[in-house]
């Protein structure tokens, strides 16, 4: 199977244009990061000098958790809209009549969702780090936030968690009949990988670079697997008629 970069780029460009003019998506991408930014910022400003190592680590952990929720929630809102939204607008059928392969279409949609999500996640991490450096009463906070396991985790987890969230969102969007259902289910279904981050935050797992790399590898495998699953689920006939192809030959022909 050869993928055409031109077709993927065409989908990405269209998705960006549509996102830019979608009030709901822009609202979600703006409001949610701000909400998740408020809590750690308040904690950073509240800290007094000479706090214990345990409190610092707990603050770093909870900040990390909140920052990791961003690349999960934001792309879920976008991805959940991707297929059912097209169907509600009546744009899905013309799209499916073109030579675009389902893998190309899905990759284009995923890329358009992952870029802003990861961008926002990195930006928030930078904001928190800069604020900690400038305003935290105790320099240990900055040290804890920028420890290698945190930085590696942020860099690796943000795109991989976003990838998981996107594929889950698209999978649900392919089957859902309503945008709201897709978005709510998509958000819920994309949360499980955060369990590892929660366990780190609860200090059940000790953060380390090796743990971050291991978790990243698992996420990468899960993302690639989900891409395959979602591509297999993306059945032209089912999307248009609501009916699954009636025979093996039929299903293949509609692919």
């Amino acid at each position: 199977m050869s993928l055409d970069a031109g077709r993927i780029l065409a989908v990405v460009r269209k998705e960006f244009r549509a996102l830019r003019r979608n009030r709901f998506i822009i609202g979600t991408m703006t409001v949610l990061p701000v909400i998740f930014l408020i809590s750690p910022m308040i904690e950073i400003f509240r800290l007094s000098p000479g706090i214990s190592e345990e409190v610092v680590q707990r603050l770093a952990g909870s900040t990390f958790l909140l920052l990791m929720i961003i690349p999960v929630v934001v792309p879920a809102a976008i991805a959940a809209y991707s297929v059912v939204g097209e169907r509600e607008q009546g744009t899905l059928e013309p799209l499916l009549t073109t030579p675009v392969r389902r893998e190309e279409l899905l990759l284009g949609k995923a890329a358009a969702a992952i870029v802003p999500s990861v961008g926002i996640a990195y930006l928030l991490f930078a904001v928190v780090a800069v604020c900690a450096k400038l305003f935290a009463a105790d320099p240990a906070v900055t040290t804890a936030l920028l420890q290698s396991s945190q930085v590696v985790g942020e860099i690796l987890f943000a795109p991989l968690l976003a990838g998981w969230s996107i594929w889950v969102g698209i999978a649900i969007s392919s089957r859902a009949s309503d945008v709201r259902v897709a978005q709510q289910l998509g958000t819920l279904a994309s949360l499980p990988p955060l369990v590892v981050v929660v366990l780190i935050d609860l200090q059940v797992l000790t953060p380390s670079v090796s743990l971050a790399l291991t978790f990243a590898a698992v996420l990468l495998v899960a993302d690639v697997g989900m891409w395959g699953v979602v591509s297999a689920m993306f059945d032209r006939e089912r999307l248009l008629t609501g009916a699954r192809a009636t025979s093996g030959r039929s299903r293949r022909a509609a692919g």
Partner: peptide, 24 residues
């Protein structure tokens, strides 16, 4: 199709650019 299914938030040219891209 009977319903042309255009992206209503995009301009006419942007709609056609998408499909031109998909047709390579």
């Amino acid at each position: 199709p009977e319903n042309p299914g255009l992206y209503l938030r995009l301009t006419v040219i942007e709609n056609l650019e998408l499909f031109a891209g998909l047709y390579g």
